[in-house]
């Protein structure tokens, strides 16, 4: 029972990262009309930037965190004009073309990370960021939650709540959801499509930065292949929940995190990815349109 509780807590903190990434992916898909499955790869690049800055500043946490978030926003701004060009010509350009652009961005980043940073070896984040050296944040019997887990868990909860608050309680969020449900109809009722698309793009930049920091704290390391791995999961969660289904993504994201944590707790960490995908494969076979239905 104690392992179970510990792993549920771990699962929620891992799951909240998936939720941030999946929601970012869904927003880009629905509002900006960008199929950006390399979004998690961009997030991993921000983790690397944060790591480099930590190295240069003698592990100054504040600067490291700022670097992670700012770099995600910067990468976002730099890549925006390319996507914006496609968004402007939405009527004429197939949105599948954004997929090619995303793929290209992903490949360049992964290639760069595997050749030019740390000779392609995995990077480890310093203890003062992850809190590993301080031992458990609290320990009751066999339940032991590290300080890092606690921070990433609280960050995850705060930002997921904040994100859904923006989506469901603000003017911009209302416009996001309207465009997500019916882009042509949203245009008819006077919502500026391009501007709102750019807003959603900017928001995913911030989300990406927060996720980067959160992943760094939770996993404590990163490798060039991490982005691909996360990318696959984000795409899978998004499709299993029902492509574009924001609330579905929230639930499935958390469930995937818990599933992985339980496999790690009771069986073997090395198998958690494969098992996660077997379960997701079964889910998609049973519910081909996603558990909560496609919202496109």
């Amino acid at each position: 029972m104690e392992i179970f509780i510990a792993q549920i807590i771990n699962g929620i903190s891992l799951g909240s990262i998936y939720v941030l990434l999946v929601t970012g992916f869904n927003l880009l898909l629905l509002v900006a009309m960008i199929i950006h499955f390399s979004f998690p790869i961009v997030v991993v690049l921000s983790m690397y930037v944060s790591w480099i800055v930590l190295g240069l500043t003698g592990n100054n946490i504040f600067l490291g965190v700022i670097a992670g978030i700012v770099s995600a926003i910067l990468i976002n701004i730099i890549t925006a004009p390319m996507f914006q060009h496609i968004m402007k010509k939405r009527g004429d350009v197939d949105i599948n073309s954004t997929m090619v652009l995303s793929m290209g961005i992903g490949m360049i980043i992964t290639d760069f990370l595997s050749h030019s940073v740390n000779s392609g070896f995995p990077i480890a984040f310093p203890d003062n960021l992850t809190g590993r050296n301080l031992g458990a944040f609290f320990q009751i019997g066999m339940i032991s939650i590290s300080r890092g887990d606690m921070i990433s868990l609280s960050m995850g909860i705060v930002f997921v709540l904040g994100l859904f608050w923006i989506l469901y309680k603000t003017r911009a969020g209302r416009a996001f959801r309207a465009i997500a449900e019916d882009p042509a109809g949203a245009k008819l009722v006077g919502i500026p499509i391009l501007k709102t698309g750019l807003q959603s793009y900017a928001m995913t930049g911030v989300l990406g930065g927060v996720s980067a920091v959160s992943i760094a704290i939770l996993l404590g390391s990163a490798s060039p292949g991490l982005g691909d791995q996360l990318g696959h999961k984000v795409l899978a969660v998004s499709i299993i929940a029902g492509l574009g289904n924001l609330k579905g993504g929230l639930i499935i994201g958390i469930l995937l995190g818990i599933l992985e944590a339980l496999v790690q707790g009771y069986w073997s960490g090395t198998w958690s990815n494969s098992i996660a995908f077997v379960v997701m494969l079964l889910a998609i076979l049973i519910k081909p349109k996603g558990i909560f239905g496609i919202k496109l």
Partner: peptide, 29 residues
Amino acid sequence: VRKGIYLVPEGRGVFASMTVIDNLLLGAH
């Protein structure tokens, strides 16, 4: 729309997944 013209579209164009109040507020976006 800002100039003062608004369309009530054919088929109503109501956002089915959103609440009545959200739909109304979209008009005042």
